[in-house]
Nucleic acid binder design. Structure first.
Lengths: 225, 225
DNA sequence: AAAAAACTTCATAATTTATTTAGATTTATA
DNA sequence: TATAAATCTAAATAAATTATGAAGTTTTTT
């Protein structure tokens, strides 16, 4: 899953990024208000970590934008203990959770996990969908109880499509989502084709229906039916 | 849907074009006032992006022309922050929205979507018309809940006729609308006949009434009744 | 450092869509 | 009704997109 971290202190931001990347999230950092705004409008995130004290504006002002452009996305507000605002505590501004600096990375991680679980998986740890079972915490996918080994990229692509059932996902969106900031390096879709092919093969070989539909000229779609 | 971008800075114009073409709009650029005026009077657009600072005149002076020749067309004014005029902000000049440079492409895109939705679809995301349902965002058309797969061209032609119910649409207009600047390459209507035929067949096969009437020697019309 | 796994690139094949062609049908007009 | 022009249709060809297997890199694991 993909996370945006909005935080102006570079060193602090990087250490958070490093930590949560180890937890297998794709992480991007926006170092100021406007960079964050652009990313929110252009890219897809599943959770946004929002420091509200930014040099160029309050992170809180990004919340309406997040709701508009990414209604499914979770929001965790990062705030210093002394600047904390009652509205944040009450989460009246539309965030899912907040955490006060300083905090332990493991705590942040736990909260991200909880928010994502609530937002995307109905609070469950294991998702059931027809013949498919997904163990979120372990990033494992089963077809009729038989585990299939997906690589990181395959898993990310699968989950992106799965979490957007019946919606057209363009190849550009997939690249953006899975490769994050590195997505500019690509000038063709060959590797997408390959990953999709391998992903499909693994699923189908385990007796899974082919839910992934190619939409000519546009992208892919996970068909619920 | 088709968009005209009136903007003299070539590079800027091209990057906008590239971006919104990815969103499946047909895009034409007019690089100066008079080129814009000609296009507005001759062609069909659903939305016009109007930079008001043009070397050959103010884009605002094109607005009456747009109203006269294309009453359904949306207008979004592009303006530099410092040259902004109160009348623009109040939209008293007849625009639907405005955006100040610099802006994010995603923001422009969101505004285009909103203006088109307001102008053409009554603000709705899904259109219902007798047995037809149209999911604008996903570019999907259903007949009595059964999805019919239209190709890009078929979809564009269908929407053009649909959005101009009971009005005669000439074959030239269709070519102009769907193929944009490339429309000069065609010297006969054979391919239109084919696309219309295939479109009709898909619709009728799904149990849809044949709303598309041929008007001999002139073009086609989407009959509401 | 070697081996294994994962990722990307490349060449080629398969598929889907777009356009052209040619013949059949319909319409307008005389 | 005869004729020409316009339109419709299906089939053939061309163009664009996607799928595939294999080769070459890079990254990770041992």
């Amino acid at each position: 899953m993909k996370i945006l971290l909005v935080e102006d202190e570079k060193q602090f931001a990087n250490s958070i990024k490093e930590y949560i990347e180890k937890e297998n999230y794709v992480v991007e950092i926006a170092y100021d208000f406007w960079e964050a705004k652009e990313k929110i409008e252009l890219s897809n995130y599943d959770c946004i970590l929002l420091d509200i004290m930014l040099p160029s504006g309050s992170g809180l002002d990004l919340i309406p934008d997040i709701h508009e452009f990414q209604p499914k996305c979770g929001i965790i507000v990062i705030t210093a203990k002394n600047t904390i605002d009652d509205r944040v505590i009450g989460l009246e501004l539309g965030a899912d959770d907040y955490i006060t600096k300083p905090f332990h990375l493991a705590e942040l991680n736990a909260r991200i996990k909880a928010v994502l679980r609530r937002r995307f998986f109905d609070g469950k740890k294991v998702i059931n969908f027809n013949e498919i079972q997904i163990d979120i915490d372990n990033r494992e996918i089963f077809v009729n109880q038989n585990k299939i080994d997906l690589t990181k990229r395959e898993y990310e692509i699968f989950m992106f499509l799965f979490n957007n059932k019946n919606r057209l996902i363009t190849k550009d969106a997939i690249i953006e989502y899975v490769w994050g900031d590195d997505s500019n390096n690509f000038d063709n879709f060959d590797f997408i084709y390959t990953h999709i092919k391998n992903l499909r093969k693994k699923l189908i070989n385990s007796g899974c229906k082919d839910y992934i539909q190619s939409i000519y000229g546009l992208g892919y779609k996970f068909n619920e039916i």
